[in-house]
């Protein structure tokens, strides 16, 4: 089958599958003696930003490598753009953009050369690549470094180059595995801005992260993974509404005194959805009204060293669902 035909068939197939660009049922990945992904179901719809949230080792990257048609599926069904990765890997990969967890740039080549060479892997012509490479360097704010080697660039610049590179074939789906891990806060915000623009341009984003702020910023819908399974699914707001309370009061007591304080505070809670989480360094009160909970703590003569009232985040959802925090 020639390439233009392949592209047409893919386009038609994806129109039919407008509801789900990616669809997985019972998706499983096993290595010799270890199950990384344990029978998960999910659908990714066209134009949405879909996230896999979970700690390291939850099975996110293995899932991404199966979606990227790199690692074979052990069991279950996976369809990407309506196609089976087992038999049509190269045709699917021609329509994907991939941002791996670790950069795979050639550090000896220039920014421009990295983009050019990568485009050639997709079978793109030299003439067509020239304007595309310029456009992407502009997008990644790297035009001034076009002819500089990649080696000395900052981590954030390298990451932006990796993202630019993943867009060389105008992918229908962009896969991002931990896109901002290891970057400083400013570099993360620049990157989020670029990703947000892509989302606005209609690119379907699939990303993994163990940062709840990243998931909240970027994802329309996400699944929470733990131990190879999906433990919850929904929009960030839905997940918070379903699995946490509106507010959280964080009370910090003297070292060693947190557990005992939590014990006494639990008697002071009222609502049936309210609960207490005792962490080594602080006590979290999941309540409807945080200020009132702090006041009640004072009423029973518990005076924390510091207290903070905030709204619930995905971090709290994760703690609630798994009993552990996201970033260890």
């Amino acid at each position: 089958m020639s390439a233009p035909e392949t592209a047409e068939v893919l386009a038609r197939n994806s129109d039919e599958a407008a509801e789900a660009l990616i669809s997985a049922q019972g998706l499983t990945k096993r290595f010799a003696d270890f199950t990384a992904v344990d029978g998960i179901d999910f659908d990714v719809r066209r134009g949405e930003a879909f996230g896999f949230l979970g700690p390291n080792g939850a099975g996110k990257s293995s899932t991404m490598r199966m979606i990227g048609c790199v690692a074979p599926v052990t069991a279950g069904t996976l369809r990407i753009l309506g196609r089976d990765p087992a038999t049509q890997g190269p045709a699917i990969r021609a329509r994907l953009g991939v941002v791996p967890q670790q950069d795979t740039l050639d550090l000896e080549l220039t920014v421009r050369e990295n983009l050019y060479v990568y485009g050639r892997y997709f079978g793109m012509s030299r003439a067509a690549l020239r304007p595309k490479v310029d456009e992407l360097m502009d997008f990644a704010q790297l035009s001034e470094r076009a002819n500089a080697k990649v080696e000395p660039l900052s981590g954030g610049m390298k990451r932006r180059l990796t993202i630019a590179r993943s867009l060389i074939n105008d992918p229908e789906i962009l896969l991002l595995d931990e896109p901002t891990t290891g970057l400083d806060p400013q570099a993360r915000h620049v990157l989020w801005d670029r990703l947000y623009r892509l989302k606005q341009a209609g690119v379907t984003l699939v990303l993994t992260t163990h940062y709840m702020d990243e998931a909240e910023q970027l994802c329309d819908r996400l699944v929470v993974m733990d131990g190879g399974r999906i433990v919850a699914e929904g929009s960030p707001q839905e997940l918070i509404a379903a699995h946490s309370t509106r507010e959280v009061a964080e009370l910090r007591f003297a070292p060693g005194a947190n557990a005992a304080a939590a014990e006494r505070l639990s008697a002071a809670l009222t609502g049936d959805r309210e609960r207490i989480e005792a962490l080594p360094d602080r006590v979290l009160l999941y309540v409807a009204d945080g200020e009132r909970a702090v006041a009640r703590s004072h009423e029973i003569d518990l005076f924390p060293l510091s207290s903070l009232v905030r709204r619930s985040t995905l971090e709290d959802v994760f703690l609630r669902l798994t009993g552990r925090s996201l970033v260890d």
Partner: peptide
């Protein structure tokens, strides 16, 4: 994205192992 959006270049052909050779040629300029 960007100021102007350049349409996706057509995927002219299924890539071959020679594209990897081409990469090495680009790298060999150094």
């Amino acid at each position: 994205m960007g100021t102007e959006v350049v349409a996706a270049p057509p995927l002219s052909a299924r890539p071959s192992a020679w594209r990897v050779v081409e990469y090495q040629l680009v790298a060999a300029r150094r």
